[in-house]
């Protein structure tokens, strides 16, 4: 039996079970869906608002960005949160204690996170198309673009999540990831066109993948005339894929090394220490 192939297959099965668990655990679903639902409701109220003389409402203009943000936040934070929590409760150590367990664990996490996110993306897309006027999703070239952006976004955000998750070794330090992420979101043109920001903020926003994921989604879902609102009056298709790919390549190159380092450092006493620290933090 090829042991590597077997490890991946076992990981795949693990991912399916974890997906089922997420979908059947109300607290998991609520924690995830409530913030998304709030965002969509807020956008729905923004259907009356408009940006300059754009042909669609501000709500419709922002909806594609929400789908992108969901991918970015979900892809990254789910993996960071999982790696951090699983180190505290010993799931990772368990994986380390069985043959091929670490590979199985990681493959499982990637599979379950992707499944969960893809499902949510489809739901969000459906809601967007029904609730918001002016979205265009009627032709195969748009479907293809949408699928490509989703795939690219997933790959880059999951690998960034793996990198950050292996660096954060205490649940308390999650804020070190969440806070900067929120800052990045604020300057990524998700809720309001980035062109409205001062130029130096635009420059910083364009370094991170969140802006480009939002741009890709708008490209796939908004009338072409709206590219006039974007930087350079264009969807910048090539640049969008190039930046997302660059983030993916760099993270994928670093992630395995960091994950191995993280795994090497796991032991019963390191898990116990972490838990003790966490309890002190609460006490």
């Amino acid at each position: 039996m090829n042991t590597t192939a077997h490890e991946y297959k076992t990981g795949w099965k693990r991912g399916l079970v974890e997906t089922r668990i997420s979908l059947t655990t109300p607290s998991d679903m609520l924690g995830y869906l409530v913030p998304l639902a709030i965002m969509v409701v807020v956008l729905a109220f923004m259907r009356g608002g408009s940006f300059e003389d754009a042909p669609v409402s501000l709500g419709s203009m922002s909806m594609p960005g929400i789908i992108g943000l969901n991918l970015a936040f979900g892809g990254m934070m789910t993996l960071v949160g999982a790696l951090v929590m699983d180190r505290t409760n010993g799931t990772l150590l368990r994986a380390k204690s069985i043959p091929g367990g670490m590979t199985g664990y990681l493959v499982g996490r990637i599979v379950s996170t992707s499944m969960f996110l893809l499902l949510n993306t489809v739901v969000l897309l459906g809601v967007g198309l029904i609730v918001f006027d002016g979205l265009e999703f009627g032709s195969p070239d748009r479907w293809l673009l949408f699928v490509l952006v989703v795939a690219m976004g997933l790959i880059s955000m999951l690998s960034i999540g793996a990198v950050l998750g292996s660096l954060v070794n205490q649940p308390q330090n999650m804020a070190l990831v969440v806070m900067p992420f929120m800052g990045v979101v604020a300057i990524s043109g998700i809720f309001y066109p980035i062109a409205a920001l001062p130029e130096w903020l635009q420059a910083i926003g364009q370094v991170f993948p969140v802006y480009w994921l939002g741009l890709g989604m708008r490209h796939a879902l908004l009338p072409d005339a709206l590219s006039a609102v974007e930087i350079g009056d264009s969807w910048r298709t090539l640049e969008m894929f190039a930046v997302l790919a660059a983030w993916a390549v760099v993270s994928l190159a670093v992630a395995p090394r960091l994950l191995r380092r993280m795994s090497r450092r796991e032991s019963g006493s390191s898990v116990a220490q972490r838990r003790e620290k966490m309890q002190q933090g609460w006490g």
């Binding site: 010993g90 368990r94 069985i98 043959p99 838990r275």
Partner: peptide, 19 residues
């Protein structure tokens, strides 16, 4: 991994895979 497959480990406190 071959070596790993031949041993079992039970630690003091394991709370993994709770769901």
């Amino acid at each position: 991994e071959h070596w790993r497959a031949r041993m079992g480990i039970v630690l003091q406190e394991w709370r993994d895979n709770g769901k």
